[in-house]
Design a protein around this nucleic acid. Structure first.
Lengths: 196, 196, 196, 196
DNA sequence: CATGAATGAGTCTTCATTCAT
DNA sequence: AATGAATGAAGACTCATTCAT
């Protein structure tokens, strides 16, 4: 070991970056602050990631990939589609709440001011997440469980509705629990708002 | 005169601010740029609004109030609830697309870095919009059209799902038209995804 | 007055810049130092000149133009060519010694590290100086005083020989006076080294 | 062995340093870049040369000594002085063009920003080169070929005129060949500009 | 001998804000 | 009411140098 453990500074930095970026957003995050939290010198940040933008990209990419991996892992089930769909929603909600940092980044800071190159990279990651959801819906559609509807837009809608509800209960912790959120979301998504 | 026609510079500035803030977001927007677009000197910005944060707050507040006013105006109808609900969705979508600037601001830049005082003000405006939707849903619920569901969370979900879909088609103009967006959204919201 | 005197800060900065740039060269000069010497805030530097490179370019350009103007002014004479040529040499030497700052900059810091755009601008100024000398030599050639020789190369040679000798006596003040330099240079340039 | 073959890394570094320093000048040269070109680790640079300044000094010193050695070697001739002088000029020009790297360094980067100690060392080397030329002129003067003129200043002038002309044709390859440069220089130096 | 990850002092540059006019 | 020159605090990034291995 030694060559196997490629400097844990790398990971320290990414962890600190995820925390700071999610707390403050890209533009308000300060490299100094990240360095302090990572317990490395500022130069070390730049030795490992050549710019703030690239550090941001790495943070988002690695974090997002981990989340998608986790969702996939948990969804390996033989449940009937409705239960499977419920599991999808609840899993995404749970992971969103756990990694609200990253979620926040991805859903709230795709605006301008970041290197185009990096923006494209992040958009690519986000797109892969949407595609993953669309793929799942497609599978349900083939089984006859999902109505005839635009899958890409539906996936986008699914991501958006989960984002807004989770964001809301994170910011207003008193107004609702995770369970309630999952039920409301499943309710809406499975049978719509109408139908009292 | 005086309070009625508070110098038209005031309006010029707000218009320019809306454009710039929406294009770049709060942190990336530059006071210089706003001044140039408003065709006033930079000092005039500060003569009319004492800080960047306050200018932002004014921009969002005034813009938002105008939108809510418009939605309210268009929804004065005696249609049966389902049609009324469809009208709600299509109206919000249309106004979102028209004022994507503001929508973008409100949905994407509520993160940190802004004076708490201002943040609270904006949150208050946003909240009023959510409440307006919830109120509409409540009315539908009383009429027996909306199922027994948490109205606040549902309103949040409604705003979120519209935001994500509209954002998506704005960024990918080729992947869908406004009409398709409205139909997909109404489809999901009225009867859910399930039920193929 | 007021609008006529376009802020003397501009000139203060250029003067300070000329001094610092000539003492330390482009890369070693610090904007802070220039600001302090110009008795303005650092921001004022950037308000007047948008970058270090551009400040450098302005310094060199304005200084150089002043020198060329002076040389031209002093050379308006009806002397016979040999005396005229002697005057040319002595004038250039005198101005070089007076503005050794700028001379140093122009002859010693045309190396890399500066924005290409700026480098080109400076090269253009330098070129104009060379052309001015060549023009003078051409005039002498037409009068039959200058031998049949490449005028551009001769102008370059003239500038180079003056530069090296002036540089030398500036760095070794004990080894020669300005008068001696002028005589040696005139001696070499008028009748060559050979011919003892 | 050991002192004779001080690790060939030593030479690799000096070669790379000569290239980089001459391309970019002292201040713009980066130790990283030199290390990469020398194909050694950055630490190895510091193992062999304790600082950037010292590496620069070593580069200049060793290179310069090699050049002076070569000039001396080629000038061992029994030619009559005029031909000998012509040979001196053409040899210096040829070596200048061959080692334009070093020439550039020596003539263009004697400004500030380098350790005084190192600056003095380099000035010493430069001085030795001037003295070598002066010595040659002195020899010609004794033979009655060189007029009664300040030899040190003349040597400085000779170096300067060669530098400027060579620099010029290096930067404007189309405006003149090496041969033309030699002839122009010899023309000026042997019989002056005047005398059409 | 050789390495390269780590360091942090030092720089340029940006931009909200002020204030004399 | 309006201006815009001036400010200076704050932040991203560079790079010579060190040192544990």
């Amino acid at each position: 070991m030694g060559s196997a453990k490629t400097s844990n500074k790398h990971k320290q930095i990414l962890d600190a970056a995820a925390t700071i970026f999610s707390q403050k957003g890209f533009h308000q995050a300060r490299m100094d602050e990240i360095a302090v939290m990572a317990e490395v010198a500022k130069g070390t940040l730049y030795y490992n990631f050549s710019s703030k933008s690239l550090l941001f990209a790495a943070t988002v990419t690695e974090g997002m990939e981990e989340i998608v991996r986790k969702v996939r892992a948990e969804l390996v089930s033989d449940l009937p589609f409705p239960e499977h769909f419920h599991l999808l929603v609840s899993t995404i909600v749970r992971l969103y709440m756990q990694h609200s940092d990253l979620a926040h980044i991805i859903f709230n800071e795709l605006s301008s001011g970041i290197d185009d190159e990096v923006l494209v990279e992040i958009e690519r990651v986000r797109s892969r997440f949407i595609d993953f959801i669309a793929e799942m819906l497609s599978w349900g559609q083939q089984k006859g469980y999902i109505k005839n509807i635009d899958l890409k837009l539906s996936a986008v809608a699914l991501a958006g509705i989960i984002d807004s509800v989770c964001s809301h209960i994170l910011q207003n912790p008193d107004e609702g629990s995770e369970e309630k959120a999952v039920e409301t979301l499943y309710d809406i998504l499975s049978s719509g708002l109408l139908g009292g």
